[in-house]
Design a binder for these strands. Sequence first.
DNA 1: TTATAGACGACTGTATGCAAAGTGCGATCC
DNA 2: GGATCGCACTTTGCATACAGTCGTCTATAA
Lengths: 227, 227
Amino acid sequence: MSQGVAMAAVIRPLQRPVPLRQSVYDALIDLIVGGELPPGQHMVETDLARQLGVSRQPIREALHRMEAEGWVDLRPSQGAFVHVPTDAEVDNLLDVRALLEAETARLAAAVPASAAKAAQLARLREICTEGQDAAEADDFTTAVSVNNAFHAEIANISGNTVLAELAHIVGRRVQWYYRMVAPERGHGSWDEHRELIGAIETGDRGLAQEVARRHTERTREAYHQPR
Amino acid sequence: MSQGVAMAAVIRPLQRPVPLRQSVYDALIDLIVGGELPPGQHMVETDLARQLGVSRQPIREALHRMEAEGWVDLRPSQGAFVHVPTDAEVDNLLDVRALLEAETARLAAAVPASAAKAAQLARLREICTEGQDAAEADDFTTAVSVNNAFHAEIANISGNTVLAELAHIVGRRVQWYYRMVAPERGHGSWDEHRELIGAIETGDRGLAQEVARRHTERTREAYHQPR
DNA sequence: TTATAGACGACTGTATGCAAAGTGCGATCC
DNA sequence: GGATCGCACTTTGCATACAGTCGTCTATAA
């Protein structure tokens, strides 16, 4: 059967020009996570615009999105301030993350075995190896991004996109908070990650849920450790 | 003890001038939930601006926030379209809501009894009565808002503000989807609500969690009912 | 010296303008 | 008659301009 376009299977929606607001959004989050913009900092639109070489408009749009995701607080007629997390809020956020990650893992374990799932599991193992390498090399930056990729992949397997998005947003904020108190090392518990993969592979929902929850709890302990 | 300002306990941060974008945001959500803007509808900034009597700027800002919360899809250089939920996505969202509401209820049940909690429980019962009245009067609009108030109050009791916010956002979207398929009646299961209150009051975490989950599951059944 | 009123400066909120990208329609050619 | 190319219109993306508000600093009076 001939089609108007050859190789239709390979053609994808192709990447439209990335809006400036998106780049600005990414840049600002990096600045916050990286610590250049400390909590409580007043983010003056004009300054940011000049520094990033754009007008105030994309800056504002990025800030609004960041407010919706909890990165900044927007006080009317005063502008944007980097969000200052209280201890109680960090606890709350960790609770939520535990909840979301556990459910994600449970759903992923519930997915019946298939060729697609096998491929995703293989990808998970691959990510694990990368993470371990980064951890051993004390490469914190890639360790973080690899960790994100790991959880994103599990969310992928689970098949619940809504849950995946929420987990992603919450996860990034947790990483930010975590980095503020322990900037020097990632929680390189890649063995736990492997255990989780196993639980997902064998389809043991309860175990997957439990392992994920325990894993998240460890972050809380690390956070509350006396420093 | 005399203070510079009398009645300090009553004074609150006071309401700063509400930005236009906020009003626009509320108005647009009402339009979507109310069905004036059907899913897939192209929301032209200029038209909305003229209809609401403001410039394009506040419209854009509201649209960006609405995208972050899943109300509209923003296609680059094409504009905003009212989000079209797929059946799979509705299921996903219902799963997430079940998860969030159940956890909220569990946390609320875990809060130790106190004068403050007693007052909140009383408020819950009050809301229940209002809801039942509205349901019996077939006043769907207030029934919905009362239902929202009910869940918001439980989230309040739970003390986890992060969870509360998430539950609120997800809950509103569920109500929208639900209303699209069953515009004529609310799910007036106020007896279940009362059962939930009881579980929270006696501090039975497991029961509270279970009741909340069951309650949410009923929504799913109603949604998938052949129509 | 302290408290208060006034004015100045800075920043946000809103509106408008301009250029580029996209879409749809019509003319044209096979 | 059908498909394709090109043009014009629509709409967004970004920039700029203006007005209102808030915070602060200073000068003045008690």
